[in-house]
């Protein structure tokens, strides 16, 4: 009960003191969904610069990255936010997986260790977000416990969520599966890599961020 009261007080205080431009927009999801690719696309579109490096090897982003004061416009609408790119959330990390893709032993161990810290940080930061974009690989099965746990935790914290089904440039892409798995949320199909349908993404972002 105390927890509920504390959450309520925090929410009221946050709303009272939230200034325009101080909205924290988090990018969450499993590894290799395309969070940093989308972060780069947003930053390129509105700031003309990249946010972080991307790779086909999982856990490329192992630290929280923040880009402040991104201002996006669509017609008369305007939204300013701090973009928070988070490491992918996983329930298992095996350094041997990195050896299989050609990394040296020390490099693989170090990447695995950093990746575990990254997951911990991502979960710790959940409470600080004002709006969250869940970035899922639209070619993969969305019905994983990691996805369900992240979305469930955001719902419990009453944080607005937009689901992005990424990689709609690929043949295996299936947005219907994602919509069926999370019917209570808006799902937007995009290709962050090629910028396909990102206009629809920005429209949806305006709607969800002002909730």
């Amino acid at each position: 009960m105390l927890n509920i009261i504390q959450k309520f007080i925090n929410k009221v205080l946050n709303n009272l003191f939230k200034k325009k431009g101080h909205i924290k927009l988090g990018l969450y999801g499993p590894p290799n969904g395309g969070k940093t690719t989308l972060a780069n696309k947003i930053c390129q579109d509105w700031l003309g610069e990249d946010m972080g490096s991307v790779s086909n090897i999982a856990h490329e982003t192992r630290e929280i990255q923040i880009k402040e004061q991104i201002n996006i416009k669509s017609g008369k609408k305007e939204l300013t936010f701090n973009l928070v790119d988070t490491p992918g959330i996983a329930t298992k990390i095996d350094y041997e997986d990195f050896l299989k893709v050609g990394m040296k032993d020390n490099e693989a161990k170090s990447r695995a260790k950093e990746a575990t810290k990254g997951v911990i940080d991502s979960i710790k930061w959940l409470d600080d977000m004002d709006t969250v974009i869940i970035v899922l690989d639209g070619t993969k099965d969305p019905y994983t416990q990691v996805n369900i746990t992240i979305i469930g935790n955001l719902a419990a914290r009453e944080i607005p969520v937009l689901i992005v089904a990424n990689k709609n440039d690929l043949k295996k892409f299936n947005i219907k599966k994602i919509k069926a798995a999370f019917p209570q949320y808006d799902v937007i199909g995009i290709s962050a890599k090629y910028g396909k349908d990102t206009d629809k993404f920005y429209e949806a972002l305006f709607t969800v961020a002002v909730k």
Binding site: T91, V119, T149, I150, A155
Partner: peptide, 27 residues
């Protein structure tokens, strides 16, 4: 609880080492 599920993942990550690689979880 939902918060406990997230905490379970967090604690799992804290305890990963060469013998313990993590968990698979489903509800």
């Amino acid at each position: 609880k939902k918060e406990e599920e997230a905490e379970l993942i967090k604690v799992t990550m804290e305890e990963i080492n060469k013998d313990f690689k993590g968990i698979e979880l489903a509800v």
